[in-house]
Simulated scan of single mutants.
Amino acid sequence: MPTKAKLLTIGDLEAGFSSYCEALRRLVTSGRDIDAIRRTLCWDYLQRLHTSLPQSYRSPEDLVARYRRATSCARAN
């Protein structure tokens, strides 16, 4: 995570959840490897949400796995 990242509240993170998921989906679709994805802000924000509210938000690892499965299924069809 960049060192100068703005500290967001949980409410701010929740408000941007769909945007972070979309950014993560685009990274997966473009073929980025997991190490590169883990260095992004969207990963950090999704991880913070999952850590703070695990009952409400899936982990970024789980989301990456889901997006990869969806991408591979779409390519197979």
Rank of each mutant, 00 (worst) to 15 (best):
A76H: 13
L63T: 00
D33E: 12
R32P: 02
R58N: 10
T71C: 11
A23I: 12
P60H: 11
K6A: 05
I34A: 12
D62K: 02
A36H: 08
Y57W: 08
G11Q: 08
N77Y: 15
S52L: 03
G16C: 02
F17P: 00
A5R: 14
L7I: 08
A36F: 06
S30C: 09
W43K: 03
A76P: 05
T40R: 09
R58A: 10
L49F: 12
M1H: 08
R26W: 09
N77Q: 14
D12K: 04
C21I: 09
S18C: 07
R32W: 13
L7C: 04
S59Y: 03
R38P: 04
L27D: 13
E14R: 12
S18E: 15
R58E: 12
R58F: 13
L53S: 14
E14K: 14
Q55D: 01
R38L: 08
K4Q: 10
S30L: 09
V64F: 10
P60K: 07
D35L: 11
A23R: 11
D35E: 14
L46Q: 08
W43Y: 14
K4C: 06
A15D: 10
Q47R: 14
V28W: 09
R32D: 12
C73M: 12
L49E: 01
A76I: 05
S18P: 01
C21M: 15
D33V: 11
L53Q: 12
L41C: 06
L24R: 05
D33L: 14
P2V: 04
D12H: 07
